[in-house]
């Protein structure tokens, strides 16, 4: 149905409109995923630091008893 890749990319003269639509959509969804991933890693890291600090606290208490 398309006469080679050049014909496909040209989109019957509407290349800017069609690829501008799909390109921006892909970029926006990708950005949403990346930002959310970063926020998730940050939240996890914060909680894990807290866990380690709590564990270290209980360990030092055990050390005093010895």
């Amino acid at each position: 149905m398309w006469d080679g890749i050049g014909d496909f990319l040209a989109m019957g003269g509407y290349a800017g409109y069609v690829w501008g639509s799909y390109g921006v959509t892909a970029a926006v969804l990708l950005l949403e995923g990346v930002l959310l991933g970063r926020r998730r890693r940050r939240a996890h890291a914060l909680l894990q630091r807290r866990t380690r600090r709590a564990a270290a606290g209980s360990q030092s208490k055990g050390g005093n008893e010895r």
Binding site: G33, R40, L46, L47, Q48
Partner: peptide, 30 residues
């Protein structure tokens, strides 16, 4: 489906951020 996935993921993070002192959140993060 994309929206469902990304909203559920964000809600998970939001739940963790709102309960930073709870034991379940610390375990879930690990």
């Amino acid at each position: 489906l994309y929206s469902a996935a990304v909203v559920l993921r964000r809600a998970q993070v939001e739940a963790l951020e709102r309960e930073p002192r709870s034991e379940w959140a610390q375990a879930a993060a690990a």
